[in-house]
Amino acid sequence: MEMIVTDNLSKTFKSGKNTVEAVKGVSLSVKKGEIFGFIGPNGAGKTTTMRMLTTLMPPSSGTASVVGYDLFRQPGRIREKIGYVSQKGGCYELATGYENMVLQGRLYGLSKAQAMENAKRLADVFRMNEYCFRKVSTYSGGQRRHIDLAMGVMHNPPLVFLDEPTTGLDPTSRANFWEHIRRLRDEGVTIFLTTHYLDESDSLCDTICIMDHGSVVAEGSSQELKRQIAGDIIEIGLNASDIEMASRLVSSLSGVKEVAAGEKTLKFYIDEGEKALPEILPLFVGGGIPILTVELRRPSLDEVFLKKTGYTIESAEGVEE
């Protein structure tokens, strides 16, 4: 079953005389029980898309259904079935984490007893017992993200939206947070998250959707996206005098793409590099070309991103800030 299906979903803002197309016709589908990652630099339209799907903002055009309900006609039904954790979280700072959770549960129609039970269970699950009876204003960054996530799942929604859930966390807290998200997925919860960390989407997400300038530029699993690029990367170090001959040799092989000759290296892409490499190396030996070094690399999502958008995500972030 599809938890989210959108077709040509768009959002246009008017600011003065200018109209800004924040989201330009996004079509995507999110399957039940997967972690769906929306990646892209700041300003790509990720948050706007999420705000539309969570009923916070009406779309300008297009269609969408969320948990089987129509986004335009049944926003109330959608709210019953989704949890939403924004970048800022949105707890009452002067109330305790526990009070925040109980109130959240009650606003979703739980009885006081039920809400208290759920809050206690989540305090255990997210290991918040030490601090959940303190005011939220005293929490560390990691503690905040835990209470925020707990708030988002207080009413056991089948679909949870997380907007930049780990921004600003140190590596240990992030890894710890990923575990909680994975466990939710294993319990059958569908997760839709945005991030601008490529490593996060690589290791956490089942499906990745790259967004740039308001449009989806690529969608698939991390493996699929990397394969789409050009296969694996092989880089061979050679004597400068042998480069030209080696280049001709490699170019003649089937399945080799984009041969790039450096001063003392030859770099090329090939599918299933781990199988191709043992076949290629003897050709060099047979051709009398001495090999100095060999490197086999899997393409990273950074390379996928560069290929799809024409720039690295770090450079885009730099421009934004």
Binding site: L56, R79, E80, I82, K88, G89, G90, C91, L107, G109
Partner: peptide, 11 residues
């Protein structure tokens, strides 16, 4: 602090 936004997504 995102409180209003969070409340607006509840039922």
């Amino acid at each position: 602090n995102g409180v209003i936004e969070r409340l607006r997504v509840t039922t």
